[in-house]
Write a protein that binds this DNA or RNA. Structure first.
Lengths: 203, 203
DNA sequence: ACATAGACTAATTTTCTATTTTGGTCGAAT
DNA sequence: ATTCGACCAAAATAGAAAATTAGTCTATGT
């Protein structure tokens, strides 16, 4: 029995095409045809794998979310100091958003004018990130780096600041698209904010 | 020669009506008729005082801006510690936005999908606030409370965080309107962020 | 001159309708 | 198990018709 991997599963191929098209046009402006055409398939065939457009979009977001959280998890070594983990977190978070474009869009566009199920996806991701940061903070408390705090409360605060800085960057930018310069500035602000936060909870 | 003040100037009356209506409906959805009707005037008469709708809106924003900056200036006593000034600033800023509704809207709504002249108004206000905070930080440096920093850079960072937190709050809120609870949370986050910031630049 | 407003216009917005596109289904083919 | 052409109903789009609205001009009273 040979497990040949020359071909990735069809599902994977579809997801990649969908990821690409959704990132390019957004959920509303991407048609099922766009996605099918991208991989030379018939539109109807997509419905063999996904019950509807929304579920395909959900799968794409889920994929990016998993990738995001998995990559972040890698940076968390129980041996490392919580301080350095938090610092690495901020940096890696920014870099990951460049790959997880749909996730980034979810964080960048307003969530008020979007479908309820998209809002749910965003909130779910937010919750998971709060959870993750909570665990880092707890780790820091356990090894005596951080003062006794409410991990969840503080994690929510940090997430608000990070989300906010991204929004503020979009708000302030000159063109309708963020330039390299904008990203550089955003990165700097993120690092600064996280440093400040860490400083504020040191023992 | 007697200076009777029983009647406020017509210009003032118009500005108040415009402020009210713009705050209620926004720039686009407020008609010159709405404003004129509010004070029992003919629409055409407004054009005796203001050349166009935009200039009337500008005047309203200017008025709120002046009020905002003037009120803030009051809190800055050269004798007070820069630390306390910054803390008061954060609190007063939030309270003032509840009165300067059009200014708050400018800060709350996205600025990307609006007229260029509105974007300019926002940027101008932003600049003035950066200037103001800069002066507070410099004051703090002069009296030896704050470490040697670049006041403008730090001021811009604080403004980004404050703008961002407001945006994040809008992002996270359940309803399309902010509840008392949302405001309470936003207030807490603002205070916390400013405290953190102050802490980060102490000598 | 100072203020005000009715009547008017050009431009913009809104509304309504005809047309196309798109999400989704089904049965046939492979 | 997988793919797709043909089809449908719903949604988006486009374009013309109708209604609002910003702004002007002139007349009128003060």
């Amino acid at each position: 029995m040979e497990t040949i991997e020359k071909e990735e599963g069809k599902l994977e191929v579809i997801l990649k095409a969908a990821q690409k098209k959704f990132a390019e046009f957004g959920l509303a402006k991407t048609t099922m045809n766009d996605i099918a055409a991208e991989i030379g398939m018939g539109k109807a065939s997509l419905y063999y794998y996904f019950s509807c457009k929304e579920s395909l979009y959900e799968a794409v977001i889920s994929k990016e979310q998993d990738h995001f959280l998995q990559e972040i998890q890698k940076t968390i070594k129980p041996t490392a100091s919580a301080i350095s983990i938090m610092k690495v977190y901020a940096k890696k978070r920014m870099r990951l958003f460049e790959y997880c474009l749909n996730l980034a869009k979810l964080n960048g566009d307003g969530v008020s004018n979007c479908l309820p199920f998209v809002k749910k996806l965003f909130e779910e991701f937010g919750k998971q990130e709060v959870e993750l940061i909570s665990s880092i903070l707890e780790h820091g408390m356990n090894i005596g780096e951080f003062a006794p705090i409410h991990p969840k409360v503080e994690a929510e605060f940090v997430c608000s600041v990070m989300l906010g800085l991204r929004q503020a960057a979009k708000y302030r930018m000159k063109e309708s698209l963020m330039t390299k310069e904008d990203y550089k500035n955003l990165n700097a602000n993120m690092d600064k904010a996280v440093d400040m936060f860490i400083c504020s909870i040191l023992v």
